[in-house]
Design a protein around this nucleic acid. Structure first.
Lengths: 223, 223
DNA sequence: TACTATTTTTAGCCTAATCTAAAAAATATT
DNA sequence: AATATTTTTTAGATTAGGCTAAAAATAGTA
């Protein structure tokens, strides 16, 4: 009956992300960890979400939870809003990609659909956000792109950075320092067995050493 | 200790507006009317606000309430955020001036100060919002402007519309129909005693009849 | 002034969303 | 398989922010 609350929305998002990542039903504990609450609170929330006139989650006692179609619709729309706001913050307000997550986390709960439509239009209906993640359209459809992790790129194969797997501020700030941004051209010159490092040619100019950990968190698209 | 809540913020805003309008302490009933709650709830909220480490309101039992300096600071900042968002919605997202209040009502509660600074900059540090109301700067200072109500304009004196007193959607939509917007040039040709109407010259072109009620809600600045 | 009407406060209840502690179920380990 | 560990749920409490109904204070009027 009441409009969906911020807490409810955040739970849906957590469940959506967990199910996407693992391909399985989301566990109470895992949700609690993301939400920074306790398992008991999650159970209570799940019961509320599954008890709605139109249930948003499907719950089997002790067997985890998954979203119903209605729940997925809502979660996808939240992701859409989050990523559009992040794009706005970077493109229009000159925030850097490591600063926008927290603010978008608040903005995504603004309800007015017309606002999001207009924002989308204002931004030129972008398909990807500042971290290279796809922005679902108003119907919830994501744009896919054949991208691989830099780890999996063949030696000497030229590619462009199109996204990050880890979007934590610390990783993003490190990339800033390396001047490694979305659109940067990369090519693996050599995989060094000795220390698991990788000699990279960046933008056809400078040579750069990246650890495997970094390469495992960068999505690239071959040219 | 906790950050101030949306409900608390809205009460502060209501108290601020009431005190500005009346010049007196705000009454419990008046606040309840604005907040669409009951007097008892307002009393409870007032007690909370006045009981903070740094009290936000000054309450004397049965004698109404007024904001402390800390409360004023917060209320002013809310008004700043509200008016900046309204400006954004009209200037950048092409909303019309009658649509923006509700959405700004939500956006104003977003906490990040940096966001507002950047938004202000993006908009070119505007001094007035789409309804002609002044936007306080980051220190809470309003820009004043010598403006009078259209009712008080001398006959044949040329002036420009700079704001509205009533900013309800219905009034704003009516003005839209009359093609009477901020910046429109107006001149009173004749005050008709008979029915309290006013013959106006609009933009040096067309003649228009406005009732006193409309004239009482339009701010103009003489040329 | 004394009575009436209005306004404000108090008292007690309710729901959403959290918590802790304990019970129950599922999973893992000898 | 029996037991130990982990996970999930239940039970009961708390806090914010609302409500209603009744009591108390203030204001208005005969």
């Amino acid at each position: 009956m009441n409009p969906i609350s911020k807490a409810e929305e955040n739970h849906l998002k957590a469940i959506f992300n967990l199910c996407e990542e693992t391909g399985k039903r989301a566990s109470t504990n895992a949700i609690a960890k993301i939400m920074q609450t306790k398992a008991a609170s999650v159970t209570a929330m799940i019961i509320r979400l599954s008890g709605k006139e139109i249930p948003l989650v499907n719950h089997q006692k002790h067997k985890g939870v998954r979203l119903t179609e209605a729940g997925k619709k809502l979660a996808t729309n939240l992701i859409r809003k989050h990523r559009l706001w992040e794009t706005f913050l970077v493109e229009k307000l000159n925030f850097s990609w490591d600063e926008v997550h927290e603010i978008a986390e608040e903005l995504e709960h603004i309800k007015a659909e017309k606002l999001i439509d207009r924002l989308d239009e204002f931004l030129g209906r972008p398909k990807f956000d500042p971290h290279g993640d796809p922005i679902p359209d108003a119907d919830g459809n994501f744009t896919f792109r054949k991208q691989i992790l830099l780890t999996d790129l063949a030696e000497n194969q030229a590619a462009v950075v199109v996204g990050v797997l880890d979007d934590s501020p610390s990783f993003l700030q490190y990339l800033n320092k390396l001047k490694l941004v979305l659109g940067s051209k990369v090519q693996i010159l050599e995989r060094v067995e000795y220390d698991g490092s990788n000699r990279i040619l960046l933008n056809d100019q400078q040579e750069q050493v990246l650890t495997n950990k970094v390469c495992q968190n960068l999505y690239v698209k071959t040219l």
